[in-house]
């Protein structure tokens, strides 16, 4: 019983954070490509800041991954 609850908690943690992070990245990338298409001359600068922002969002998802891995393997 307890083991299954832990598994459920891990799945919820990574599932919720992963879906939200994927949504955020998709929204941001869409906007960035939009602005690149409008102004191709600033494309490289947009790309740089896009990469940094994606890394920061991905970090949140990786925190969730670490938490759920700890849940699964420590408890």
């Amino acid at each position: 019983m307890e083991k299954s609850l832990v598994a459920l908690a891990a799945a919820l943690a990574i599932g919720a954070v992963g879906s939200i992070a994927a949504y955020a990245i998709s929204k941001m990338a869409g906007k960035a490509f939009d602005s690149m298409a409008r102004q191709p001359e600033v494309a490289s600068r947009v790309q740089t800041s896009l990469t940094i922002a994606i890394v920061f969002i991905e970090t949140c998802a990786i925190y969730a991954l670490v938490v759920s891995l700890l849940l699964v393997f420590v408890f």
């Binding site: 970090t59 990786i62 991954l65 891995l69």
Partner: peptide
């Protein structure tokens, strides 16, 4: 902390 957890989480997740 954020630099370390990012690297660790990615490599460990890929390994599993």
């Amino acid at each position: 902390v954020s630099l370390a957890l990012r690297l660790f989480g990615n490599v460990f997740g890929g390994f599993i």
